[in-house]
Nucleic acid binder design. Sequence first.
DNA 1: CTTGAAAAGAACTGCCT
DNA 2: AGGCAGTTCTTTTCAAG
Lengths: 151, 151
Amino acid sequence: MNVFDETDRAILLALSKDADQTTAQLGRKLGLSQPATWRRIRALKEAGIIAGEALILDAAALGFGVTVFLGVKLSTKSRVSLEDFERAVTAIPEVQTVEHVLGLYDYRLRVIARDLADFERVLRRRIMTLPGVGDVEANVLLSEERRPGPL
Amino acid sequence: MNVFDETDRAILLALSKDADQTTAQLGRKLGLSQPATWRRIRALKEAGIIAGEALILDAAALGFGVTVFLGVKLSTKSRVSLEDFERAVTAIPEVQTVEHVLGLYDYRLRVIARDLADFERVLRRRIMTLPGVGDVEANVLLSEERRPGPL
DNA sequence: CTTGAAAAGAACTGCCT
DNA sequence: AGGCAGTTCTTTTCAAG
């Protein structure tokens, strides 16, 4: 987007914290009228900066108390093996995020499970049996803080 | 939550993909009336399962083309050093996520930058100078897929 | 749980500065 | 660009089956 001023920045900042605000409320904070605020939001959507709107689910409230980050290194890295791996990992329901990365590992996975016993089951029966899996490194999440980013 | 059936599951699944749907649209897909759908969503909010609603921003459209995951190991792990580290890392605008984890690393950071040159600046001047930083491992994001999880 | 309706509120449009 | 006024749509509440 070419035109992107402080007001747009403030809108994105406010909405990334709470997307449930009305355009009138938001406009009042910024000294803007409701239609003006709404038009800016529409422009941000059309520019692709606002890609969508999603619910924030509390995994713990759903009975998933354990979140683990896995770094996965493939043993063989052909084009076929990447596709095989991605297809297979996508079929595991406990996998929330699949990140293809460059560096010490080839993939980073975010996995949630009911408890550590449940996670061990997922790790042994689903993750370690994925096609082409080499080294696997695990980090258990203790706490997490999301920040607005460099807006 | 005690009461949680397939319909609630379907609601969460649909809304985590697109929270912009009206309760009437959503209800039609599920064979539910508009008020019934609305009541279920309200119940899920009250149960804390729906923790909020947030925008999905496209970092690339904002001019941030590079996303890097950092694994950080602290050299000294006293209670004070954890707090010092967290306070300092929170002040870096390029850091989007701070995850305190258990395992090979102590913290996992999600960092975004305009390009690799910009990332190098952040790494050298902001990350490597954080209090107590020991080993740092980096993975550059190529592509990412988010999945609904085990709902 | 449903349908139907009514009231409140928020989103959206057109016109004017 | 922004504001004002009005329209349309959704949410929210209610009554009744």
